[in-house]
C-alpha cells in the first residue's frame, strides 16, 4: 500500500539477487514458499503416519522403529545426528510456513480495509476448509506442541518413559480427554490438508484442464488417508485393539 509515485519502474535494471529478494517477499513468492513447505510437511505427516501404524504389528516393532530413527546413519554418523538434521529441517519448514502465513494474513487484513460488508456474504466457491485455514493451522500448531510434550518430552504424560514408544502411546490414549483432543486435532489437520493440498498446485502454477480433475481428488484422498490412519491408532487404543 503505497502511493502511485512509488510504483514499479519496468525499465529499471535489476541484478538477479534483487529479483530473487523481491520474489521471496512478494505475495506470490510467499505463496510459493507456503506451497513448497506445505509439500514438505505433507511428506512428513505421511511418513509419520506410516511409521506409527507399526503399532498394529507389535509393541516390539514400534519400539524398534523409534530406535531405528535414532540410529539413522548407522555406524557412519554419531547416534541421533541424522535424526537431528531431519528435526532441524522440519522445524525450519514449520517456521517458514507459519512466518509466510502470518505475513500474508497481515497484508490481507490491511488490504481488506476497515469497512466490511453488512449483508451476510453469500459464499459461492469458498468452502469451510478454505475459510478456516488460519484457525485449523493454529489448532494444528498448538496440537504439535502438546503432542511433543505428551510423547517426545513426556512432561504432559504422567506415565511417560523415555524410549518406550508403545507403552507411552497406550498410556496416553487410554485417557479419554487426551484421545478426544487427538481426534479433534486430526479433524483440524484433515480440513487444513483438504484445502492446502489442493491450493498448493494453484500457488505453484500447476492448474488447467490437464490437472484440475485430479487435484481435488488428490487433496480429498490425502486428507482422508491421514485422518483415518492417525485416528485408527487412537481408536485402536480406546477399543483395546492395542493394549
Amino acid at each position: 500500500m503505497t502511493t502511485a509515485e512509488a510504483r514499479v519502474d519496468p525499465t529499471h535494471r535489476r541484478g538477479w539477487w534483487e529479483w530473487l529478494g523481491n520474489f521471496f517477499t512478494s505475495d506470490i513468492g510467499m505463496k510459493w514458499l507456503m506451497a513448497l513447505t506445505g509439500i514438505g510437511l505433507l511428506v512428513y505427516v505421511l511418513a509419520h503416519m506410516l511409521g506409527n501404524l507399526k503399532v498394529f504389528i507389535s509393541a516390539e516393532e514400534i519400539d524398534l522403529y523409534g530406535e531405528a530413527l535414532r540410529e539413522l546413519g548407522g555406524h557412519l554418523f554419531p547416534r541421533t545426528s541424522i535424526l537431528w538434521i531431519l528435526r532441524i529441517g522440519l522445524i525450519a519448514t514449520f517456521a517458514v510456513h507459519i512466518w509466510a502465513a502470518a505475513v500474508l494474513t497481515k497484508r490481507n487484513v490491511d488490504a481488506r480495509g476497515k469497512v466490511r460488508y453488512h449483508a451476510k456474504r453469500h459464499w459461492a466457491a469458498a468452502n469451510y476448509a478454505s475459510r478456516t485455514m488460519l484457525w485449523t493451522g493454529i489448532i494444528v500448531a498448538l496440537f504439535v506442541l502438546y503432542h511433543l510434550a505428551d510423547l517426545t518430552w513426556g512432561f504432559a504424560n504422567p506415565d511417560f518413559e523415555r524410549g518406550e514408544v508403545y507403552a507411552n502411546l497406550v498410556a496416553s490414549f487410554q485417557r479419554l480427554p487426551v484421545a478426544i483432543l487427538y481426534i479433534v486435532a486430526q479433524l483440524a489437520l484433515a480440513f487444513h490438508i483438504y484445502h492446502g493440498a489442493w491450493s498448493m498446485f494453484q500457488s505453484l502454477g500447476i492448474a488447467g484442464s490437464r490437472y484440475n480433475d485430479w487435484r481435488r481428488a488428490f487433496a480429498i484422498a490425502f486428507a482422508a488417508l491421514i485422518f483415518v490412519g492417525n485416528c485408527s491408532i487412537v481408536f485402536g487404543v480406546m477399543f483395546r485393539v492395542i493394549a
Binding site: 514499479v8 500474508l104 490491511d110 491450493s199
Partner: peptide
C-alpha cells in the same frame, strides 16, 4: 509480468485460492 504483479501487490491482498 513482474511489473504488473508488483504493482498489484502494492494495492491489493494475496490469493488464498478460495475461488470466489
Amino acid at each position: 509480468t513482474v511489473a504488473m504483479v508488483e504493482t498489484m501487490e502494492e494495492w491489493f491482498g494475496s490469493c488464498t485460492n478460495h475461488g470466489e
